[in-house]
Design a protein around this nucleic acid. Sequence first.
DNA 1: GTGTTATATAACTATCATGTTATATGCAAG
DNA 2: CTTGCATATAACATGATAGTTATATAACAC
Lengths: 109, 109
Amino acid sequence: MDSLLDRQFSALADPTRRAILARLARGEATVGELQRPFGISQPAISRHLKVLESAGLIEGGKAAQARPRRLKADALDDARQWIDGLRTLWSDSFDQLDAFLKATEGKAE
Amino acid sequence: MDSLLDRQFSALADPTRRAILARLARGEATVGELQRPFGISQPAISRHLKVLESAGLIEGGKAAQARPRRLKADALDDARQWIDGLRTLWSDSFDQLDAFLKATEGKAE
DNA sequence: GTGTTATATAACTATCATGTTATATGCAAG
DNA sequence: CTTGCATATAACATGATAGTTATATAACAC
């Protein structure tokens, strides 16, 4: 039972899945269209798509013989926010160091 | 032989490692200090740190009895850029759709 | 109905990840 | 030089991941 964030980051950890996302960012595509560029089997693609879907990154075609997938609009917002949050923590800690240095300035040496 | 980006994203996929990064964003810490909050063994922490280091996210203490780790300044720049790149592709494709809709406006129906 | 196409699922295999405990290393204190 | 502390590494169990081939399902074409 892992979190959405877990699933998003581990979805991104695979280069094939990143390539699929990059392809889908240009527009929707079917399983067959996605398969061709990569040298791997169709079931392998289907499973990558399942992983991406359960990470909330893509959404599935309604139904038909072909069911095209597309990027979700808010895809990766969570991941991005986490990274930004870390950066904020990080720069705040520098601000604190700055403040400390300013406060103690001239007292040493 | 996987890329830095692979390593960064898979490093982030683990909640323990994300917590470690969050802790280190506040300032450097030793293995012992990192271990306490989590209920896992010291070797497990050491290995998480190794993963984070090989992803270029943290850097190691010089040497001593205790060797504190700290966040690297440019940590996650690569991951962040990849996500931003995807978002750019995505919004460009919307711009193109917009342009298309504007161009064909009034011609249909 | 039968056949064809697009996709999903099952069963299996190989590799990788994460945790454990036990042990080694490196440094500091006495 | 021995003891103790902080960390690293080895060896192992277990579960997850990513690929394979073979088969099932669903919709369309005839």
